[in-house]
Each structure stands twice: as C-alpha cells, then as structure tokens.
Design a protein around this nucleic acid. Structure first.
Lengths: 206, 206
DNA sequence: TCTATACTACACCGTTGAGTGTAGTATAGA
DNA sequence: TCTATACTACACTCAACGGTGTAGTATAGA
C-alpha cells in the first residue's frame, strides 16, 4: 500500500556485497569449502558475521553466488573465434589461450582449483554446473569450417576437438592447477608444440 | 626383561585392519574426506568406533595409510615397458593402459577422484606425495631408445613424453574422473587416435 | 536535522564430529 | 582350561561451526 514510501530509502549495499564475496573467495581458496568458516570469512572481510548473513542466506548460498560469478566471467571470454584465412596456428593459439584464461591468473587459478576439487567429489553439482556448457562446440565448428576450405583433414571434427582440448588441458591446465602455476614458465614453446602436434595429424599444409 | 613372555601372545589383527581400511575407503569416496566421519566409518565396517581408533591413531592417519596403500598398488603396476622391435603402436598402447589403470576400475577411479580432490586443495600434501614419483621417466627412456633406433624423431624426449601423457590424461583420465567413467565407452578408437596423433608428429615410418 | 536502513558486537543455540576412558565380553593361543 | 589380548558398548569431553536474536550505533538520503 505505502510501497512508494518504503522504497524511498534504499542504500547501495553492492560495495559491501562485493567485498564480502571477494574476501570469501580468498578464504575458500586457501582453506577449501569445508574448512572455510563463516566466522573466518567475516573476519577476513572486516565485517560482522551478522552482516555476512544479511547478504547471503547461507554458506552454500554464498558459495553458489561465487561460482555463478566465476562462470559468468569465464563465459564472457569464451566466444572469440571464427574461421578466416589467417594462419591456422594463430587461430588455434587463440583457442588455447581462451582455455588458459582459467588458470593464467592466481585468483582464477585458485578458483579453478577449488571448483574442480568440489566438483570432483560432488558429481551432481558438477554436472549441473557444467551441464549447459559445451566448450567444444566452438572449436568443432571452426574445424569444420577449416576442413571445408581444405586446410584441415579429419573424419570427425568432434574427435579432433577432443584431441586439441585434451592436449591443452592435459599438458598445461591440470599441471598448473596441481602445481599452482609453477609449470607456466616457458609456456610458449609448449603451446607451439601442442599446435604442431595437432596440425601434423590434421593439417593439410594449407 | 620378560619380553619373550610378552610376545608369546599376539593375535593376528590384520584381517580387521584391512576390513576397516576397505570400508573407510568406501566412506571417504562417497562422502569426501571432511564429510566422512569416524563414526560412519566404524558403522560401515560393522566395528566399534574404539576399534577403529585402536587400529589407527587418527582420522588423518587412517587416510594416510589408505593413500600409501593406493600408491603402492599403483607403483606395482607402473614398470612394465621397454624398447623392442614390436610395433610402436602396441608399446605406446601399453603405456597408455598403465596410465589408465588408475581409472579403469570403479574403486580405483573413486580413489583417484578423492586423492585428486584432496591434493588440489592441499598442495603441500600433494607435492609431498607426488614428489618421489616421476611417471614420465619410463616413457622418456623408451622414447630415447626408439629414437636411437631411428623409429622416432624428436628434439626433446621429455617434451614428447609430456605431450603423450597430456593426451592420455587430458582426453581420457580427467573426463573419466569428472563423469565417473561414463566416457570410457568406446575407448579403443580414442586410444588409437591418440597414438596416431603422437606418431604423426614424432614417428618416422619405422 | 531526522529517520529508516545497514551494520556491529555479542551472546546464544543446536549439532556434529574427533577423540578418550572404562567396564565388561568374546576369543585365540598356550 | 586359563589368560592376555582384541573387541564392544557407551558415556563422555571438548571444540568448532552454522546460524539466529537482539540491542545499540553509525550513516545515507530526504
């Protein structure tokens, strides 16, 4: 009834909301989900525990919101490629770098580690989260386009895409998560080699 | 002083010890380390909680013993290959299958998932455990031998080995852990493709 | 300046879980 | 049969943690 009066006063709490999320990410990354306590998060954020609960219904809720923000950030990066007459190496490199976005920054790498760790032990959550996400689709389309122009040769673009992402993830991503990025020194030669491997199997020599 | 008398009576408790470990593995796999309770483990094993603590100092101790047994089991499988005049494909396949030993059985796969999840969030433990373990060494030696015979061509056997394991892990292992082995159907064509990719880059055509 | 809103400080609750102590029972080995 | 050993049942401690309630304070917006 008097809703217009009630809505007159509404302070902007997004700053604190964001602050709590950022600090919570830090705590979750360093302790893991279970071992991270809401008291610890509140203290790290320099905020009372009650404020945390005023912003987030529960620990799980807070975590979900962090996951959502992370995935949204990642998805903003994803769609960046298309078939052209630029060198194949260059375009494949951009696919690889998009994939490596998840681990080329300490914070994102920490979150990737955390989420991977959680998803490994909670298949339902993992599948639900990863369900609507098909990272290979873009590369498959790219491979088909390149094949149509005779620049690639393969029976199954899906298989080739799987090989490519397998190479990138197997050679780089997982090691980076495991060793906290210590294997990211001298990355470029490795990336070049990965692309060379891929093209020696599927390339036609332009 | 009268130690020979004391040692006369010693019952064989290894059966129960093993039973507890096996049941604990089940619980750890299904719940994760943190959420698995010692009460739950005792109940699953059909044993009193006190007995669990008579066999294992602490939860962490029990977990460590499980890890050790798992790694020992895996290491027993590892050293199985050497250079010969058998087809390269065949020998590479055996390297790949040795790697897939970790995930080709539901129990081992569960343990791999659990340990990976734990190691991801506890770098110290992960590094300490993985420290004395160099899985690439065998393949590197194999590649050097094959190169010496002119059957492979590469500048850096270490890099080639990294590519090979990256392919196997990236294309198969990680997906199997994430999806609980649902991607292990139709594995052979994928393995063949992986080996074909590797040989198209490093093979010389015998 | 005034007031609704956000926030703090702090006590509090209920639960869970690791680990212990103990008294009594079952059993393997002599 | 005898006895030391393994085991059980159970009560218990202690600490941590998720979450709530509240009274009071600071502050943004009118």
């Amino acid at each position: 009834m008097n809703s217009q009066q009630k809505e007159r006063k509404k302070r902007d709490t997004s700053k604190k909301h964001k602050l709590i999320m950022e600090k919570a990410v830090e705590v979750f990354i360093s302790k893991g989900y279970d071992s991270a306590s809401m008291d610890g998060i509140a203290e790290t954020a320099g905020v009372s525990k009650r404020t945390v609960y005023n912003h987030f219904q529960s620990k799980e809720n807070l975590f979900q919101e962090i996951i959502a923000a992370f995935l949204a950030d990642r998805d903003r990066i994803k769609p960046m490629d298309y078939a052209k007459n630029r060198p194949l190496e260059e375009q494949l490199l951009s696919f690889a770098r998009a994939e490596l976005y998840l681990i080329d920054d300490p914070l994102r790498r920490g979150l990737s580690r955390l989420l991977t760790s959680v998803f490994l032990m909670d298949s339902e959550l993992g599948n639900a989260t990863r369900g609507q996400y098909s990272p290979h689709a873009g590369l498959i389309r790219w491979i088909e386009a390149a094949r149509d122009e005779g620049r690639l040769s393969c029976d199954s673009p899906a298989l080739a895409a799987r090989i490519f992402y397998g190479l990138v993830e197997g050679c780089i991503t997982w090691g980076a998560m495991m060793s906290d990025g210590k294997n990211l020194q001298g990355l470029d030669p490795l990336l070049d080699e990965i692309i060379a491997v891929f093209l020696s199997r599927y390339g036609t020599g332009s």
